[in-house]
Design a protein around this nucleic acid. Structure first.
Length: 263
DNA sequence: GCGACAG
DNA sequence: ATCTTGTCGC
């Protein structure tokens, strides 16, 4: 039983106020708790290690790049999707759609949502989990791009941002040891009761000794995933680099695909 | 009016 | 996001 909500897909023709209203509706439909059947701790398990014959879940990483016009203007967005299972890439697809609106903090999904949904349509495999480059519940109206896409497709999703859009860390997040997590709570800028746990600052990697720090990632539930599980998933998937592997590879692929189209 | 602001 | 090589530090 899929509860996909294509009717809530981002529409760049809406007014800014209508976009914000739609986001409040999406946040209302979204589930910020675990609601999936796969085993998150099996995400990076090698296929061979699966004893009972059950295959590891399929995780998909998604990232965008932008194509430039003959005049030098960004006129199209390219969404790259990389599907992995048991630590291996099993499929890569991408889609390009025209850019309708500029970047506006808080309305990212209305700018990048179309190519993402188009690319996901191209996928032949069925994703168990979607990983986005951007926020989920850590958002002014609790409906970042990970939440929006997750609700429209009704697939568990997680937002992985490199900087904090809003909310407040409950403790200092400077120089955290790898593996550390610090809660991010709502503040006055967020459309939620103060103190609501929106997500976590997640330190996947850290330098050994110098007086220089690696910034943490800001991980938040998209849809059908709780904040703790979202953080756990990112820690497990970020084996060799700061970013979780599916997102890192989608990042790479977004650039490759872009160049193969004539920059 | 001032400050904040994912990609 | 994007323009971009070398370079400082472990």
């Amino acid at each position: 039983m899929s509860h996909a909500r294509a009717d809530l897909a981002p529409d760049a023709a809406l007014s800014r106020g209508e976009m914000e209203d739609l986001q409040r509706e999406i946040a209302d439909v979204a589930l910020f708790e675990d609601d999936f059947s796969f085993d998150p701790s099996a995400l990076s398990n090698p296929l061979e290690a699966t004893a009972s014959g059950a295959e590891p879940p399929i995780v998909v990483g998604i990232d965008q790049s932008f194509l430039t016009n003959d005049d030098g203007d960004q006129d199209r967005a390219l969404s790259a999707v990389v599907a992995m299972r048991g630590g291996e890439v099993i499929e890569r697809v991408h889609a390009v759609t025209p850019l309708e609106i500029p970047y506006i903090p808080g309305l990212l999904s209305f700018r990048e949502g179309a190519p993402i949904l188009a690319a996901l349509e191209e996928l032949s495999v069925d994703p168990d989990l979607l990983l986005f480059d951007g926020s989920g519940r850590i958002h002014f109206r609790q409906a970042g791009i990970a939440t929006h896409m997750g609700v429209v497709r009704d697939v568990p999703s997680v937002g992985v941002a490199k900087s904090l859009l809003c909310g407040t860390p409950v403790e200092d997040t400077d120089g955290l040891p790898a593996g550390t997590t610090i809660g991010i709570e709502s503040n006055a800028r967020v459309d939620a009761p103060d103190g609501t746990l929106l997500g976590y600052a997640v330190q996947t990697r850290q330098y050994d000794s110098p007086n220089r720090y690696i910034n943490p990632l800001y991980v938040s539930p998209g849809h059908r995933v709780g904040p703790e599980t979202a953080a756990d998933i990112v820690l497990e998937l970020a084996s060799s680099y700061k970013l979780p592997e599916p997102v890192r590879l989608a990042d790479q692929y977004a650039d490759e695909a872009k160049k193969s189209l004539g920059e």
